[in-house]
């Protein structure tokens, strides 16, 4: 099956400082992909760059195709159809994404008129349907309300309704529940998975929370310092992480049941993008680092069906498996 989105060698630099250093990623139709990593690893920048949403001084190169059509550097007229139409995005802080002086009806209808070419009665009926779909109680009356009259969880529901207005093929959810309380987070994640199932929509879930990603995605990509270091089906990644950084992230998470153990913290901090170490960016923090790690950055190589890792140790073990190392 042809992928919905194909990203190849995507690079982004701000003022000569590289923040994205060659990202390759594919996303199938209807697939849920999780993107995890610490702040500054490039999770959000990947998608902002792909959709042409970065400021003009950002230097972007590589290739991003949607349904086989190149969209990186595409003319604004094409991008305007894609953004909010075929690809929608929701963010961590929903309140700042809504206009505080317009009613919810006005804002929903605007999105519908723009992307679905609806008007008159149909647009109002569709706005009501969307608000009902995302579970806003008493939707007909609440359409006339302003954003401040809703709670944080409800505002995120409204943002999801607006994202759905264009019947998108792909929803990019950038930390959609980070600002919400635990019980509300559970509600929003459930809503997202229901909507995705019903509409057959693909989703990219960007989060720093491994648990959130593990439970809501089919496949997970782990990012570190502007690159993908491991990619695997969600259940396999958490059961058996291969890259030392992925192992570290999972080891650093305190368990909620079973015996308490000392957390295996990853020493040091994320490297400064302006002074990236030579070779593997994770080597200075890696307990397994050896001399070859400092020579060249390992590339993301497949180690099994649907699994890829960027680590020389993984490459070595794969070679051993294939009997290449003997030569």
């Amino acid at each position: 099956m042809a992928p919905l989105v194909n990203i190849e060698g995507l690079r982004v630099a701000f003022g000569g400082v590289p923040v994205l250093r060659g990202v390759d990623l594919t996303l199938g139709k209807g697939e849920a992909l999780g993107l995890v990593g610490e702040s500054g690893s490039g999770k959000s920048v990947t998608w902002l760059a792909a959709l042409g949403l970065l400021p003009r001084h950002a230097k972007v190169s590589g290739s991003v195709s949607l349904d086989g059509r190149e969209i990186l550097g595409a003319p604004a007229s094409l991008l305007d159809q894609i953004r909010g139409g075929r690809v929608a995005m929701i963010f961590q802080d929903p309140a700042s994404a809504l206009n505080p002086v317009l009613t919810i009806r006005k804002q929903l209808c605007e999105a519908l008129a723009l992307h679905r070419d609806l008007s008159g009665k149909t647009v109002k009926a569709e706005a009501l349907r969307l608000l009902n779909l995302v579970g806003i109680p008493d939707a007909a009356r609440r359409l006339a309300a302003y954003p401040h009259e809703f709670s944080g969880g409800q505002v995120q529901r409204i943002m999801i309704a607006m994202a759905l207005a264009g019947n998108p093929d792909l929803l990019i959810a950038d930390e959609p529940t980070t600002a919400l309380d635990a019980t509300i987070q559970a509600q929003i994640l459930e809503l997202l998975s229901t909507v995705r199932r019903e509409m057959g929509m693909a989703m990219v879930l960007i989060s720093h929370d491994l648990g959130v990603v593990a439970e809501n995605c089919d496949r997970v990509a782990v990012m570190y310092a502007g690159r993908i270091v491991e990619q695997a089906p969600a259940n396999q990644l958490f059961a058996d992480p291969v890259h030392p950084y992925a192992q570290g992230l999972i080891g650093a998470l305190p368990p909620l049941d079973g015996p308490r153990r000392r957390l295996t913290a990853i020493p040091g901090t994320v490297p400064d993008p302006a002074h990236m170490p030579r070779g593997c960016a994770f080597a200075p923090r890696c307990v397994f680092a050896a001399e070859p790690c400092g020579l060249a950055a390992p590339s993301l190589a497949p180690i099994a069906d649907d699994r890829a890792v960027a680590c020389i140790r993984a490459e070595a073990s794969r070679r051993a498996l294939l009997g290449i190392a003997a030569e």
């Binding site: 019980t183 648990g211 439970e215 999972i250």
Partner: peptide, 10 residues
Amino acid sequence: SASPAPGRRS
């Protein structure tokens, strides 16, 4: 129950 855990589906 709302606390997400890796390796456990919802």
